[in-house]
């Protein structure tokens, strides 16, 4: 479903954020991308839906080349769901409006249909009662669950998560992870940048470890946690898992 081949990203000032990265996500697979800060994992995932550009390599999502000049990016993005570290709900719209606006304006659905779909998804993440509220009135965990629902409302073919729980207080992390675990168990294709190794162990199929712009390891979950092949991955894991 998502094919990343030899992608490199170099900033104008010469700094290379991604060095010849390659990986893939098959339909129904859940991939966890982890690594220390500055490893390029957020940059890589943002390249998948063209929020970041890249100078070399290729990314193909469901048969469409992301980097090709002729690609209709808004259309592509409407089929790829993304959840951000800082939730990024639209503060001037109610929770329900956050869910319906893109359905109506991008997918062209009728308002009633969008509202029905939105309410169903809010139900699914346990927040239906909060539909008329505004994002500023919700907790971080609630906002992130709404953000997931907002992405799901577009009926995406795959979901990208950029450190979805990093900005949350500890007691709210689980409510968001539970939604993501449920999503994974239902067969959604997911690419998740996260430090939450518990989540990885539960539902990931593969784990990709990045460091300083390179894909250092790309292994099946059991292999990765069992015997990581690189020293860097080993060091990273020991730091992460010790707390």
């Amino acid at each position: 479903m998502i094919d990343i081949r030899n992608v490199s990203k170099i900033y104008p000032n010469g700094f290379q954020a991604l060095k010849d990265c390659s990986t893939h996500v098959d339909k129904g697979e859940v991939i966890v991308v982890c690594g220390p800060s500055g490893s390029g994992k957020s940059t890589l995932i943002k390249c998948v839906n063209a929020l970041e550009d890249f100078q070399q390599g290729e990314i193909v999502v469901n048969g469409i080349s992301v980097g090709a000049p002729k690609t209709d990016l808004p259309k592509l993005r409407s089929h790829v769901g993304m959840v951000f570290q800082h939730f990024e709900l639209f503060p001037h719209m109610s929770v329900l409006e956050n869910l319906t606006i893109a359905q109506v304006k991008v997918l062209g659905r009728k308002k009633e249909e969008a509202v029905e779909r939105g309410l169903k998804l809010l139900d699914r993440v346990g927040l239906r009662a909060h539909a008329p509220k505004f994002p500023g009135q919700l907790s971080g965990g609630q906002q992130q669950r709404v953000a997931i629902a907002r992405a799901l409302a577009m009926d995406p073919i795959c979901m990208l998560f950029d450190e979805p729980t990093s900005a949350l207080d500890p007691e709210m992390i689980n409510e968001v992870l539970d939604v993501m675990i449920q999503l994974a168990r239902e067969g959604m294709t997911m690419m998740v940048v996260t430090h939450e190794m518990g989540f990885a162990r539960k539902v990931a199929h593969r784990v990709v470890f990045m460091d300083q712009g390179l894909v250092v390891e790309d292994a099946m979950k059991e292999d990765f946690f069992g015997k990581p092949r690189s020293e860097r991955a080993q060091a990273f894991l020991s730091k992460i898992l010790s707390h």
Partner: peptide, 11 residues
Amino acid sequence: GQKAAGLALGF
């Protein structure tokens, strides 16, 4: 992130 979130939805 607000701009990114808008674009990510397909706007």
